[in-house]
């Protein structure tokens, strides 16, 4: 069962009078539970691809089917619902809400889902346990290290138990020790919960954790390797 199907996917951006092709005829399928990295030089289209899979943008041609929903055909509202319920995001720069505590940051997606207080508390504590931050629930993001912030961001992405987690260069701002820790955490969640991870990266350290590596160049897939970890 493919959780993500990309068929002849093309993404063009209007530039001046013409168009710029950021993604060119992408055909990829992702199975549930994959742990996949997107690599490629700057400008090769990694972020663009994550954008489309994450229903933040839509394809110009071809189709992107995520959780049996065609991204191109979703309204704003349906796209928001898809993200809210099934997709977790992790950003390079964490993007935690600064005025809220660790607990409240992780709780936020559940507030959007109208979960009750007990459900929220249990889920948040569970998510913080996964990333090893139960002792920091009252801290504000400003008091945390970069690595800790990214772990909070992972907990926030994971707390609603999404099917897919998309991460754009999640280790780019972290040192090597923290990068390994983050990758190990994500790998563990991937194995234990079967969540599909897809992330873009420049980071050599990341490669050893992947079980699939896709290389992009000029908007095209130039290699797609499945490793057996």
């Amino acid at each position: 069962m493919n959780i993500i199907q990309l068929n002849n996917l093309v993404k063009k951006y209007p530039v001046g009078n013409g168009e710029f092709t950021a993604l060119n005829d992408i055909n990829l399928n992702f199975k549930e539970g994959e742990f996949t990295g997107l690599v490629g030089p700057s400008g090769s289209g990694k972020t663009t691809l994550l954008n489309i899979i994450g229903s933040l943008d839509s394809p110009s041609y071809g189709s992107a089917i995520v959780m049996n929903k065609s991204i191109a055909e979703l309204s704003h509202k349906e796209a928001a619902m898809l993200r809210n319920q099934h997709i977790g995001f992790i950003f390079q720069t964490y993007n935690l809400l600064p005025v809220y505590t660790v607990f409240e940051n992780v709780e936020f997606p559940l507030l959007l889902q109208n979960k009750n207080a007990t459900q929220r508390k249990n889920a948040v504590m569970e998510a913080l346990e996964w990333v090893g931050l139960t002792d920091k629930i009252k801290s504000k993001p400003s008091m945390l290290s970069g690595g800790e912030c990214q772990r909070v961001a992972i907990a926030r992405a994971m707390v609603k138990k999404p099917q897919i987690v998309l991460a754009d260069e999640p280790t780019a701002n972290l040192d090597s020790k923290n990068s390994h820790h983050i990758l190990q955490t994500m790998q563990k969640l991937n194995k234990e919960l079967g969540v599909t991870f897809l992330f873009s990266t420049h980071d050599e350290k990341v490669m050893q954790y992947l079980n699939r590596l896709i290389s992009l160049e000029d908007g095209k897939v130039i290699s797609d390797t499945i490793k057996n970890a």
Binding site: L56, H76, A80, M81, R83, N84, Q85, P109
Partner: peptide, 9 residues
Amino acid sequence: VRLALGEEK
């Protein structure tokens, strides 16, 4: 972030 997390406009 809130939009990305799936909050409606």
